[in-house]
């Protein structure tokens, strides 16, 4: 009996270390879904150059200040980012459905000197909402971006309702835009 009692702490330590090892093994890549520090706070303004196809409507640059007073969907993407290709059709669909009430803007970021690749990305999905170029990633830093894609849902008063990390889906767009318009 005393032998068994003596073994209990050893078994406990081994079991604890095994559990820790398995946790490390199974948890996968680090979780990027960290709540934004901007949550419920006003999102930063930006003034960035537009891709050519939007210049006839907006001029050479787009300033977020001009879109204030409307709910916003701000999507950060890069031409090298696989999941960005996955989500682009959902963004275009949501813009076609809600573009009158919600202002959509795409930001090519963390993708320096890749304007041609950015243009090809936009053409591929025929993105109708304006897309701008954050060549030096300063806006991505101002928004506390961890990677791409990330999508910010901003209320009409300019405060952040939700930041979605990863490729958006139809249901995410429906849920978040529904909350923006309520």
């Amino acid at each position: 009996m005393s032998q068994i009692r003596r073994l209990v702490p050893v078994v406990a330590v081994v079991a604890g270390l095994t559990a820790l090892f398995l946790f490390g093994l199974l948890r996968g890549s680090p979780d990027r879904n960290i709540p934004s520090n901007l949550l419920n706070r006003p999102v930063p303004d930006f003034d960035l150059p537009l891709f050519e196809r939007y210049m006839s409507d907006f001029g050479p640059r787009l300033s977020l200040a001009e879109a204030r007073g409307r709910p916003l969907v701000i999507n950060f993407w890069a031409s090298w980012c696989g999941p960005c290709y996955e989500e682009a059709p959902h963004l275009q669909r949501a813009w076609l459905d809600h573009g009158e009430e919600v202002f959509f803007v795409g930001i090519q970021t963390q993708d320096r000197d890749a304007r041609a690749a950015g243009r090809a990305f936009i053409e591929r999905f025929d993105l109708g909402f304006p897309n701008v170029i954050d060549d030096d990633s300063r806006v991505s830093i101002a928004y506390g971006l961890f990677g791409v894609p990330e999508t910010f849902f901003v209320r009409a008063d300019g405060t952040l309702q939700h930041k979605f990390v990863g490729p958006v889906t139809e249901s995410v767009m429906r849920e978040q835009i529904g909350a923006l318009l309520r």
Binding site: D111, S137, R138, G144, F146
Partner: peptide
């Protein structure tokens, strides 16, 4: 470094880390 695993802005060569150093 926001886009790296276990690297600091001072050490990483990722594009975002370079921009952060410039900033």
């Amino acid at each position: 470094c926001p886009t790296c695993v276990a690297e600091s802005v001072g050490e990483s060569n990722a594009a975002i880390a370079r921009e952060m150093r410039a900033l």
